[in-house]
């Protein structure tokens, strides 16, 4: 739709001007509703050294519905679903909390922040969340292990 197209292009412009560090956006002019994002694990996080591929999908109702974020690279994280979807759905990305004026760049920042500090209280994987809370050592070990295995 014309309206959402205009908005997506605007958002892309803003992300290009001020790309969060360690991120690269692959933008396909033929299909502007799917962004491929290459993200380095933030230095201060467990995921440092990993390279993650994400997909940002804009629904046709965008900006009235939130964009959908999914990890294409496997990651051990309480807020990312541990399946082939790798979906992430929390905070501003929830359909009921999404506001049309929200910016994509804040979504990207949110993802980075979550890698640095997971949010176990708003988790999509309760098992991992509990491990994060109760057995941090084990959690860190697995997370780093997965970075080596999947995100190199």
């Amino acid at each position: 739709m014309a309206a959402s197209r205009k908005r997506i292009l605007k958002e892309y412009g803003e992300c290009m001007n001020d790309t969060p560090s360690g991120m690269k956006i692959n933008f396909d002019e033929q299909n502007i509703t799917e962004w491929e994002i290459l993200m380095d694990g933030p230095d201060q996080s467990l995921y440092a050294g990993g390279h993650f591929k994400l997909r940002l999908t804009f629904p046709t109702e965008y900006p009235f519905k939130p964009p959908v974020v999914s990890f294409k690279t496997k990651i051990y994280h309480p807020n990312v679903s541990n399946d082939d979807k790798g979906s992430m759905c929390l905070g501003m990305l929830r359909p009921e909390a999404w506001k049309p004026p929200n910016k994509v760049i804040s979504v990207l920042h949110l993802i980075q922040t979550l890698l640095i500090e997971p949010n176990p209280d708003d988790s999509i994987e309760p098992t991992i969340a509990n491990e994060y809370k109760d057995n941090r050592k084990e959690f860190e070990k697995t997370a780093k292990d997965w970075v080596k295995r999947y995100a190199k």
Binding site: F64, P95, E96, W98, K99
Partner: peptide, 10 residues
């Protein structure tokens, strides 16, 4: 306002 007015579904 952030939770009861601005979200697209409310």
């Amino acid at each position: 306002c952030a939770t009861q007015i601005e979200p697209s579904i409310c």
